[in-house]
Simulated scan of single mutants.
Amino acid sequence: MDIPEELIQAKAQVEFGLLALPGVVGIGLGAREENGEFSDELAVRILVEDASRVPDGLPSEIAGVAVCIIERVYEPVAFPDVDRYPELRGGIRIESQARGFGTMGALVMDTATGEILGLSNFHVTGPVGTQIWQSKTPNLIASVPPILDDLVGDVLRVDFPDTPPLPLSPIRVSTTDSGVFRTNGAAAQGRGVSRAISGQGLGFPDLIPAVTATAEPAIFQTVRKRGFMTGPTNGSILGAQVVGKWMTINWSPGGGNTYLVEQVEIFGNGGVFVDGGDSGSLVLDGVGSTALGLLYGASRGGAFAPAGHFGMMSLIANVEARLGVSTVWA
């Protein structure tokens, strides 16, 4: 499904005005969705908190493309888990004392220095300087040095909605919720690093041995991910698939005037695609080792779909550019 450039520009011109309407939480482009069913008709997808209370002022079309109204809200997904991996790899649990638990999507390479870093969401890692642990933080007691067995390293760079789209605008936007952290703490404890993405867990084959390419996803492309809470998921027989692109959604950690732009919406066809603890997972194409995006959030339960049947990700090209890293390295 091709999305015309003029439609992308038309959406960009009106989206923040529409998002200011009460109950509107997202707007994007992709497959028409009605009563939980998808068609191959291109539509403007407007997400609302409550489909029974749609605000006045929503258009019926933008640039000649019909609007569909969808009841759906996305939230960050971070939750505890317990496994410890002697060799770091993508898809495993990390913990930040500042933010809690989530998934390290992959080991990536700093394009300036060649240093190997861990990748996750900013809402998982916390700010620069925060210590990241795998699998858990130690009990911190005043005047007692912490045990460093599980220390991975400190957060090095982060990106999140903190830039106004126009001068003096109260709105803050970004294309990612992401962060990278050093792995020198793990190395000091004799732990190695791997390009692999974990599979079913310790002692089982990896999902992939390494990320070999990156790409921009297409509408209806099948995808998969490995998150700490749900493991490898790709939906049902038909597979999880991309159903929306160029999404702009409210970034709930920042409040009402913060937005993630250029997001991609994923439908886990027939089952849960994402659950608490999966934030930071790397999203791959359905059959190969190509990275497409960084998972940010999951849908709340709502009309026609239980919680977690939909996920939201940032484009991997934007993540790499904002953080100065490469997901493909040797």
Rank of each mutant, 00 (worst) to 15 (best):
G280I: 01
V128F: 00
M104K: 06
L148Y: 01
V144L: 09
F204T: 12
E41N: 08
I132V: 14
T103R: 12
Q263E: 15
F273Q: 11
P253Q: 06
L207H: 09
P209A: 13
S279C: 06
L58M: 08
N250H: 10
I27W: 00
Q97H: 01
L156G: 00
I249A: 12
F122P: 00
P161A: 04
A142P: 00
D285K: 01
V272T: 11
T163W: 00
S314G: 13
G28H: 09
P138C: 07
G91T: 05
G190V: 14
G308K: 13
G100R: 05
D206V: 02
D110E: 13
D150H: 15
L284N: 10
Q221M: 11
I62G: 08
A210R: 13
P145E: 14
D50N: 15
G192A: 12
G23T: 08
D162L: 03
P76C: 08
R89G: 02
G118T: 02
L292H: 05
I3V: 15
L295S: 04
L7S: 03
Q13D: 15
R53C: 02
Y296E: 03
I94M: 05
W246K: 08
E61G: 07
G126R: 03
V283S: 03
G301I: 01
I171Y: 10
D275H: 09
I46H: 07
G190M: 11
L117C: 03
L119P: 13
G288L: 06
F204V: 01
K11F: 00
Y74P: 04
E5T: 12
I27V: 14
V24N: 10
W246E: 13
A78W: 02
E262P: 01
V173P: 01
T214W: 03
A78G: 15
D150C: 12
F267W: 15
T327E: 08
N250E: 05
G293V: 07
G270H: 05
N318F: 05
L238C: 08
L88E: 11
T248H: 01
R224I: 00
T163Q: 12
L238A: 15
V54C: 01
G28Y: 07
D2H: 11
V283I: 14
W246G: 11
M312T: 15
G311A: 15
S178R: 04
P161D: 03
S169T: 02
T176H: 05
S60Q: 13
S135H: 12
N121T: 02
N318E: 14
Q241Y: 01
G308M: 12
A307H: 06
T258R: 14
A142K: 13
M247L: 15
P170Y: 01
